[in-house]
Nucleic acid binder design. Structure first.
Length: 416
RNA sequence: CGGGGAUUGGCGCAGUUGGCUAGCGCGCGCGGUUUGGGACCGCGAGGUCGAAGGUUCGAGUCCUUUAUCCCCGACCA
């Protein structure tokens, strides 16, 4: 990707209508465009990050046997009435619309009903279970107030997975399998050490749930962390009774602010019963199916990562999600510099290293400032000075100092 | 949904007690000098001041309504 061809530009001034650091940086860097409150478009660089996060989530879901689908955003009213979740008094953040003939439709805010509905033709026998189905798709929620930049929007990308089990034991096993997969996702994103499985309320789904909370000063939730056990409890269910139930002692807990980056629920047979999804067991008897649902806010994670991996100069993406590993920067207009840079651009990409190539005819200061703002893990500078020593200058975004690396060992240096 | 703040070229802002062709910085275009931490000079394009209504000889400025955005709260997967 050449910066000279990229239609987005960086901005020196902080957007006036954002106070959240994540949105300020993402807008200044041209990663996202704010369309309206709580609704953001992902521009080329932002989409790369979003897709990189989604790919990690997808990979971990696939590894535990998740089968990916793409459900519909438009929702028929009837299946939601079966579970009593159509009424605005019961679920107040629906976006609803109508067909030309007046038929009411919902705009998907979660997909328990549709996933159960879509499984009915296929899941009939004990041989079909257990099962994990998931999708990565935009969700639409009519929040009274959007806030925190891209971390709490009205339209956002979410991974939602649903498990279907024959017994409580089987369900519990799937539930824990997913909880472990979630930990691996956060680990790969570089926030494993500050993300806690957190006992919480179940909202509109169930009495209790497990949230995954990432510590952050901009967090919306207050949680109490047991550092030794690496688990936490949300303030909303913080009572002596619940503490005893989950085996935490008040004295071991530290109060923290955190952002919810995942949430998993046991749904029992509420949805499968209501929509009539059952299976026939070995003895030919009809049995109930136990369900679980597991969400990860993919676009919210982009915000969390932007916010967490940033300094006063800009973004500092972890390698796993950065739009490119390297920002290649030319200094000066010397022909030799340009031709060597062009060569390097090709060679790096051929070696599987993604490159954001700053080939613009602008002054070095501008390029360095933009490299800091955009936050690729490495900045590689090539100039007349470095070429005199057959080298390039390599600086990690998170490091204060740069080092000269011989051109012919750059690839191994970057891959280390 | 309650409370507070805001809205003026693409972005960030100024605009006095109502007064003349609405300014500044960034960015953008053209010309020139520059080239290792956001260079400089000259010229230029770009704004019905969120919208509607009103007061007035005259409104960016005053009044009413309304839309949108931000923050606090409530709510929230």
């Amino acid at each position: 990707m050449r910066l000279s061809k990229l239609f987005t530009k960086t901005s020196k001034s902080v957007p006036a209508d954002e106070t959240a650091r994540n949105a300020q940086l993402l807008i200044q860097g041209g990663y996202v465009h704010k369309e309206m409150a709580g609704v953001y478009a992902y521009l080329p660089l932002g989409l790369k990050v979003l897709n990189n996060v989604a790919d990690i989530v997808r990979d971990e879901m696939d590894k535990v046997g998740g089968q990916e689908v793409w459900m519909s955003v438009l929702q028929p009213k009837d299946i939601w009435e079966l579970t009593d979740r159509w009424d605005d008094a019961k679920v107040d953040n629906w976006f609803k619309t109508k067909l030309a003939n007046g038929t009411e439709l919902g705009v998907g805010l979660t997909h328990e009903e549709p996933v159960v509905d879509s499984l009915k033709p296929y899941v009939n026998s004990y041989k079909d279970l257990p099962l994990k189905v998931y999708q990565i798709q935009s969700k639409f929620r009519n929040e009274l107030r959007a806030k925190s930049g891209i971390m709490r929007g009205r339209e956002f990308l979410m991974k939602d997975l649903y498990t279907f089990s024959r017994t409580e034991d089987e369900h519990k096993q799937q539930y824990e399998e997913l909880a472990e997969a979630y930990h691996r996702v956060y680990e790969r994103l570089g926030i494993g050490d500050i993300t806690y499985r957190t006992f919480a309320s179940g909202g509109i789904f169930s009495q209790f749930s497990d949230e995954f909370q990432t510590l952050s000063h901009v967090g919306e939730d207050t949680i109490y962390v047991d550092e030794a056990k690496k688990i936490a409890i949300n303030k909303e269910v913080f009572t002596d009774e619940v503490l005893q139930q989950i085996g935490l002692k008040k004295d071991d807990l530290v109060e923290k602010r955190a952002v919810e980056v995942g949430n998993i629920f046991s749904l029992g047979t509420k949805y499968t019963d209501a929509l009539g999804l059952t299976y026939t067991d070995e003895d030919g008897a009809e049995q109930q199916i136990i369900m679980g649902c597991y969400g990860i806010g993919v676009s919210r994670l982009v915000g969390v990562l932007a916010e967490h991996f940033a300094d006063d100069k800009g973004l500092a993406w972890p390698k796993a999600v950065a739009p490119a590993l390297v920002q290649l920067v030319t200094v000066g207009e010397d022909e030799k510099v340009i031709s060597e840079a062009e060569k390097l651009y090709e060679v790096l990409q051929a070696a599987g290293i993604s490159v954001l190539y700053d080939d613009r005819a602008v002054r070095p200061g501008t390029k360095f400032a933009d490299a800091d703002l955009l936050g690729m893990p490495y900045r590689v500078v090539i100039s007349s000075k470095t070429l005199e020593q057959s080298s390039v200058e390599v600086k990690a975004r998170t490091s204060e100092t740069a080092e000269l690396v011989p051109q012919n060992s750059l690839i191994t240096h970057l891959q280390a």
